[in-house]
Write a protein that binds this DNA or RNA. Structure first.
Lengths: 192, 192
DNA sequence: TCGATACCATACGCATGAGTATGGATTGCG
DNA sequence: CGCAATCCATACTCATGCGTATGGTATCGA
C-alpha cells in the first residue's frame, strides 16, 4: 500500500490524504489538521482535497477509521500465541516500551478527547486493549476482579507515560534508565 | 478572595477574568479559551477585557501562573506532617482519588501539552509532584533508584487515570468499584 | 461637587481557515 | 485519435476570533 510518498508526482488518492492526515496528527495533533496545510505538504491545493472529501470532518473520520483498522493487531496475536502465560506480560511490556513510534497517533488522540469524533474511536480501542490486558492477567493467575483492576492500573500507567514523555519532555530519561524503569514496572505489575 | 461570583453587578478585576478563564479551561479545555466567549459568560464585552489584559496570551499566562501558585500546596504539607511514613502513601492515594475536582484543570492542561505556554508550567508542577512522591517512597523503605522508578510509575498511573476517566468516559466505573480499584492500587504500588 | 481615573460598550479592521464555483489539465478507454 | 471521467488550480464567499479606536459611564478623592 501507498507506492508514492512525496517525491513521485502521480495524482493523489483518498488514502494518500488519510495517511498524510495521520502523519500530521502524530506530529502536531488533531487541532493542526487543516486542509490547506495538508495540501501544501502534499504539493497540491484545496481544489484537490474537495474532490476526494466532502469536508474536513469527513477526512478526519476516514483517517481515524483507517488508524483503528490497521492499528495494532499484530502485537496482540503474537502475544496470544506464546505458550507460557506468565511470560506474556513481560514480553508485552518490553515490546510496547521499545516500539513507541506506532503509539504516537494514540498519544495525539489522547490530547483530543474533547473532540466528539475521536471519543468513540478511542473508547473502542482502549476498551479492546483493556480486555486483552485483563485476559492476560487472568491467565497469569489473578482472579477476575484483581485482573480487571490490575489491567486498569497497567493501562493507566501506559497512557500516563505517553503523556509525560512524548508531549511533555520530563527530565528526558536516558536509554539505560528507561530500560531500568521498564523492568521495575514489570516487577511491580506482574503477579508475584 | 473573590467576593463576587456572577450575580453581583460590581465591576470586574483582572483576577475575575483569570478565575473565569481557569473555570472555562477546566470545563472545555485550553482551546476553548476565547475572549469574546469569556466576556459573554461574565456579562460584559471585549472592551472590558482589553482594559485588563494586553492580549489573550497574557490572560492565559496569568491564569496558568495563578493556578500554579494556589494549586495544591495543602495536600503536600498535610501528608508530610503524618508521623508514620508507611501510612502516608495510602492516605495520599485515597485523598487524591476522592478529591478529583481540583484535578480537572490539570487534566485539561494535560491535553494541551502541545501549547508552548502550558508546557513549562506542567513541567514544573509535575516535577515537584514527582519529587514529592519519590521522597515518600524513600521514607517508606525503597532505595533511591527504586523510589524514583516507583514514583514514575505511580504518577503515570495518576495521569493516565485522569485521561481515561475525566475526558474519555470509559465504562463509567461505579463508586464501589472505584474504591476497590483504589485499594488494589494501594496494595500493588505500596512497598510490601 | 467636580474632575480625573477606572471600567466598559460599540464599531471597526484584519487574518485565518472552511467551503464553493468553475474552468483547465490528465488519464483511461473505445 | 478522441471523448469521458478523473483530478487539480484559481478565485472567490463567508464565518470566526483577535486586536484597535474611540467615546461613554461610573466611582473616588480633593
Amino acid at each position: 500500500m501507498n507506492a508514492s510518498a512525496k517525491p513521485e508526482r502521480t495524482r493523489l488518492s483518498a488514502e494518500d490524504w488519510e495517511d498524510a492526515a495521520l502523519k500530521l496528527i502524530a506530529d502536531q495533533g488533531v487541532n493542526a489538521l487543516a486542509v490547506e496545510a495538508l495540501a501544501r505538504q502534499l504539493g497540491v491545493t484545496k481544489g484537490s482535497f474537495y474532490w476526494h472529501f466532502r469536508t474536513r470532518e469527513a477526512l478526519l473520520q476516514a483517517a481515524l477509521e483507517r488508524w483503528e483498522q490497521y492499528g495494532e493487531r499484530e502485537v496482540i496475536s503474537q502475544i496470544e500465541s506464546m505458550p507460557d502465560p506468565r511470560a506474556r506480560l513481560p514480553e508485552l511490556f518490553r515490546r510496547v516500551a521499545h516500539e513507541l513510534a506506532p503509539h504516537r497517533v494514540y498519544a495525539a488522540l489522547l490530547k483530543a478527547l474533547d473532540h466528539p469524533q475521536v471519543v468513540p474511536v478511542m473508547a473502542r480501542v482502549s476498551q479492546r486493549r483493556m480486555e486483552f490486558l485483563t485476559t492476560i492477567y487472568r491467565e497469569a493467575g489473578l482472579d477476575s476482579q484483581e485482573a480487571l483492576n490490575r489491567a486498569r492500573l497497567t493501562y493507566a500507567a501506559y497512557v500516563g507515560f505517553l503523556q509525560l514523555n512524548f508531549t511533555l519532555g520530563l527530565p528526558r530519561i536516558s536509554h539505560d534508565e528507561f530500560d531500568a524503569y521498564v523492568e521495575h514496572m514489570i516487577r511491580t505489575l506482574t503477579p508475584n
